[in-house]
Every structure is written in structure tokens, then in C-alpha cells.
């Protein structure tokens, strides 16, 4: 022990998930997306409020450090009504999914989704939270409802429509012009 701590209050905000809870969450991920639960054997799951976190280190960190702000990345949000996977989690583990994946084909749709918008068309997926792909990219989490696909990309992770308008056409046109 390096230093006697006074209070570990702040780190207690994070708690270890019980075995039952972990089982429930991994069953959800497997049933909903077909992501095999064995993938997560080596990870540690912690909870803080309604959020569940996934971490590749050891759970001893809870006891060994103080003033913990985050542990790993946010995995799920769990409320009485729903379980929702995070975009950060899906961007890492979504590649192992086999179902409830919706694919965007057009760039306009990708931009709409990545700017936090709604895509009003039907997709081949069950209603609820889905994994949204665009070509080889996993963009993140979407909510598929009767109205369409609603982006769940957090504000800080979105793109700006202007980036695409300003940048895209110029890349090609610039080259063509220089040939003249």
C-alpha cells in the first residue's frame, strides 16, 4: 500500500456488475445482434447509475485508485424500459454482429445519420436499437421505429454537413482542372 486513503467515496460510484447482470447483458447482446458472448470472457463489467462500462483491465482498479472518472468505455444504458448499446461499443464489437444491422447505401443517408438526423424508410431489421453500417464502416447505434431510422450518435461524435459539402467534390475536380 502506497498511501493510506481517507475516503473512497468517489470510486464507489462505480460498482462491479454481479454475475447475473453480466449474464443478462451479454444475453441481450447475443440475442439482439448475434454477437457471441464468449467474446467478452476477458472483459470486466462495471456499473455507474444506469450505465454499464466495459473494460479490458482488472476490476481491482475500483479499490486501488481514487477519484475515478471513467473505466474503459460505456457499453450499455439500462433502464426499466430498454437496454441500449452505445455507439462507441458498437464501433468496436459491431463487426461480430450477425443481425439487426442496417446498411446505408447512399452518402446522403450517411450524412443524415452522422449529423444526428432521421432516415425515413424501411430497413430489414427488427424495431428497436440497431447497428448502422455504411460500406465498410460501422457508424454506430440507431433506433429503428415505424417512422424510420433515428440516429443515436452522440453530439460530440457527429459530423457537420458543411464538411461534406465543402470537401467532397473538390477532391476530384481539383485534379481534373490541373490536367487542363
Amino acid at each position: 500500500m502506497i498511501q493510506e486513503g481517507c475516503s473512497l467515496q468517489s470510486s464507489r460510484k462505480y460498482e462491479r456488475c454481479s454475475e447475473g447482470e453480466v449474464k443478462e447483458y451479454l444475453r441481450y447482446v447475443e440475442r439482439r445482434f448475434g454477437i457471441p458472448r464468449e467474446l467478452f470472457d476477458k472483459y470486466v463489467f462495471l456499473k455507474k447509475g444506469k450505465n454499464i462500462w466495459i473494460f479490458s483491465g482488472d476490476q481491482g482498479v475500483l479499490n486501488d485508485f481514487k477519484k475515478i472518472e471513467t473505466i474503459g468505455i460505456k457499453f450499455l444504458t439500462v433502464t426499466r424500459k430498454f437496454i441500449k448499446p452505445t455507439t462507441a461499443f458498437l464501433q468496436i464489437f459491431g463487426k461480430y454482429a450477425r443481425k439487426n444491422i442496417v446498411e446505408l447505401k447512399k452518402e446522403e443517408e450517411m450524412v443524415e445519420f452522422m449529423t444526428g438526423g432521421m432516415i425515413k424508410r424501411k430497413f430489414n431489421a427488427e424495431k428497436g436499437f440497431v447497428i448502422v453500417k455504411y460500406h465498410e464502416d460501422i457508424l454506430g447505434c440507431g433506433l429503428y421505429t415505424n417512422t424510420g431510422l433515428l440516429s443515436q450518435i452522440p453530439k460530440s461524435r457527429r459530423i457537420d454537413k458543411r464538411w461534406v459539402e465543402e470537401a467532397n467534390p473538390e477532391a476530384n475536380h481539383g485534379e481534373e482542372e490541373s490536367i487542363d
Binding site: D64, I71, A88
Partner: peptide
């Protein structure tokens, strides 16, 4: 950390000069 998909980091908020740790 979220954007890059880093899974092995614990973030703490302390004055480094008094960083508390039970491990080395």
C-alpha cells in the same frame, strides 16, 4: 478515448503530486 475505442484506460482526476494508488 471513446472515439478511438480504447478499452484499457482508467481516467482519474487528481493532482499528480498527490496521486493516490494502492498499486505500483
Amino acid at each position: 478515448i471513446d472515439r478511438l475505442g480504447v478499452l484499457n484506460v482508467v481516467i482519474t482526476k487528481m493532482d499528480g503530486r498527490r496521486f493516490f494508488s494502492r498499486r505500483i
